[in-house]
Amino acid sequence: MNDLLRLKQDYLQITIPENLDQTLQKVIYGKQQRFKKSKIAAGISLTLILGLNALPAVAEGLREIPGLRTIVDVLTLNRFTASSADGQITLDISVPTIEGAGEIGEVLNKKYLSLAEAEYQRFIENLPSAEDDVSWHEAVIGDYEILWQDEKIVVIKNWMAYIAGSGYEVVNYDVVDIEKQLILNLPALFKDDSYIKIISEEVLRQMREQMQELNGNFYWIDPADAPFGEVFSEIDPNQSFYINSDRKLVIAFGEYEVAPGYVGTPEFVIDQALLKEILVSDRYLK
């Protein structure tokens, strides 16, 4: 090992020629200034449609349950769209609007709208200027889905997809107790913080199991394989989660959070038996 370290020292002491910086500065930045700001220039038209698409969102889960009275409606009242003049770079975000869910619905509506607005702002600020080469394709798509709902609970999934060649997706779940006017978070479901260890162990077990399978997913649980040696060992106390229509807890991870990009946004269903002892009540998980 010492030999290898010595050899590494030699390697790191390879003399860097003085003209490396100069040469590469020219190659990378050309004669132009190092930092050139993109501007929205004339020639790129932007359209913003607000409140135009008042189409009721189709709550698929709801339709499957005959005779269920709809208490809460989720509609697409706001939709943001924008595009570059040539149509190569586009943005299309459908913003969910919850109606009939009282205060808590309004809180979520504000959140959804401000997230979409921020995304829209960022998008138009980063549009390339007219003199730039805009021959690449890029799309930002925001949408949502009602995973399921009943008289008391609504579970809303909304996501933002960034597509430029390959895609990148950010998913957010809201589990709403309409009756009690609560947006659930993970710690609130449990008596104490022992859930962190119990859930983490189960997630790790499922990860290892999947890695054993032929063509199974790969997870960053070994320091040698994880970028920067950062391995998944424990869930965040406020880990993203939702409750599925079987009333089971599902732990969700973002892209690149615990696995390479191709794995996407991994989710793990946690068996109820593991959580029974530490649940505050059986109101949500059954």
């Binding site: 790191l12 390879i14 860097i16 020629p17 910086d21 990378i28 930045y29």
Partner: peptide, 27 residues
């Protein structure tokens, strides 16, 4: 890309073992 320049040079140098060739490869 700019940040990676010395790393790129070292990697290139470890193959060709001389400055001129390594510089050419990096550029």
């Amino acid at each position: 890309l700019w940040e990676e320049r010395t790393k790129c040079y070292r990697v290139a140098f470890s193959y060709v073992k001389n400055e001129q060739d390594a510089m050419d490869i990096v550029s």
